[in-house]
Amino acid sequence: MMEPNLFLSMIVFGIGIVIMVLKRDLVIKLIGLGIVETAVTLSFVVVSHNGPLPPILTLPIDRVDPLPQAMIITSIVVGFAVLALSLVFVVYLSIVYHTTDSYKLQKRIKRDEQ
């Protein structure tokens, strides 16, 4: 049922997740999130390609399938918005605490609360 290329894009997805879990630096975590989003976009390209031919549906009339394009562009835009907003929050935290290490940040925030 699945294409081999889809598995490849799932591996990219997994790489992004592993980066997000294992790396402590928030900026690197954001890069991992970017990789995850790119993997999903990539898999849209994988499923909507039509061999060497352009992706044109013939029924009921000849037209380009509009769904993949719409979904890809929307997911790119939404992913960009999320990345930009979280970068703003990371910058704010790094201005206050002078670090982007998530472990240290959590410790200092906890200490400040008490």
Binding site: I17, L33, V82, S86, F89
Partner: peptide
Amino acid sequence: MFLSAVTLN
């Protein structure tokens, strides 16, 4: 934001 971005992907 991180958790919800991952889950929405």
